[in-house]
Simulated scan of single mutants.
Amino acid sequence: MTAAQADLARAPSEFPGILIDSPRVEDGAAIWRIARDSEVLDLNSSYSYLLWCRDFAATSLVARESADGEPIAFVTGYVRPDRPGTLVVWQVAVDHGHRGRGLAALLLDELTTRVAERGVHAVETTVTPDNVPSDRLFTSFAERHSASLERTVLFDGGLFPEGTHEPEVLYRISPVGSAPGA
């Protein structure tokens, strides 16, 4: 069995045909497009998504409908250099045509399972108060994993140069790393 087939085999039965894979550099443009079209994420430069796929592929995932298909969803993250037991989830997004099926939750669960093998036991992310879908995603993630969820303002809106940015609320979820309900 190839690694791609193993990933496919791990996808829950409610996602037939969905392949969970590490991103490749060629996926950068599709990931950028999904982030842009989300209408809620801060869009980074297209160059940054290419770098992300190269430098942080081990802590990021994409969902595809076939091994050679473009991503239909993604989660990007990195392990904090000063807290190697903490995964920072940078962005999670699902292409419009695939929303409402639980792909974001699937990717988040799979990513935390994979990085747990490297000693990760906590997840951090930031969510603006107006981003209800992300709040729901991370709140339900904490509940599925029977983990605590702490919220504190990490960056006040006034710190951002445009002057109209909402505060970024830090969500710290721990402990994580086992399969949901385990």
Rank of each mutant, 00 (worst) to 15 (best):
R80L: 13
N131M: 00
Q91T: 06
F74T: 04
L43H: 09
H98I: 08
I20A: 10
A29R: 11
D82Q: 13
P71G: 05
P167N: 06
A67N: 08
V132A: 11
G17E: 14
I31Y: 03
S45L: 10
L43M: 13
A73D: 07
A147M: 05
A105T: 10
V169Y: 02
D109N: 10
G157D: 05
G102V: 00
V75I: 14
E143W: 07
F74Q: 06
F15Y: 11
E70W: 08
V132F: 06
T126K: 06
S22T: 14
V120M: 03
V40F: 15
S134G: 02
E117D: 09
A182K: 14
Q5M: 11
A142Q: 05
G28R: 01
A116Q: 04
A179S: 14
G77H: 04
E162T: 03
T2R: 09
E26K: 14
F138N: 00
D21S: 12
V123K: 02
G163W: 00
L149D: 01
G177Y: 10
P180D: 05
Y171E: 01
T128Y: 00
T86D: 01
C53I: 03
A30G: 12
V153R: 09
V62G: 02
E110H: 10
R80F: 10
V25Y: 04
L8K: 14
T76K: 03
R101I: 08
R118W: 04
S140T: 08
G77W: 03
T2E: 13
V79P: 02
S140W: 03
A147F: 05
S66H: 11
G28I: 01
T2N: 12
G163K: 00
V123Q: 02
D109V: 06
E26R: 15
S46N: 11
P12E: 08
S174G: 13
H98A: 09
I20G: 09
S45G: 11
S45Y: 09
A67W: 07
A58E: 13
A30D: 14
V115I: 03
D130W: 01
V127M: 03
G119E: 05
L43Y: 07
A57V: 06
Y49M: 03
P129G: 03
A11M: 14
V176H: 01
E168N: 07
S134Y: 00
A179F: 11
E110M: 09
D42Q: 11
G158Y: 01
I18C: 11
A11N: 12
T113L: 12
P175M: 07
G77C: 04
D156M: 05
R136T: 07
D95F: 02
L103D: 05
A67T: 10
T128H: 00
R151K: 15
L107K: 01
A4F: 13
D68T: 14
A104T: 05
S148F: 11
V79Q: 03
P23G: 06
C53K: 04
S46D: 12
D109I: 02
H96K: 15
L170I: 04
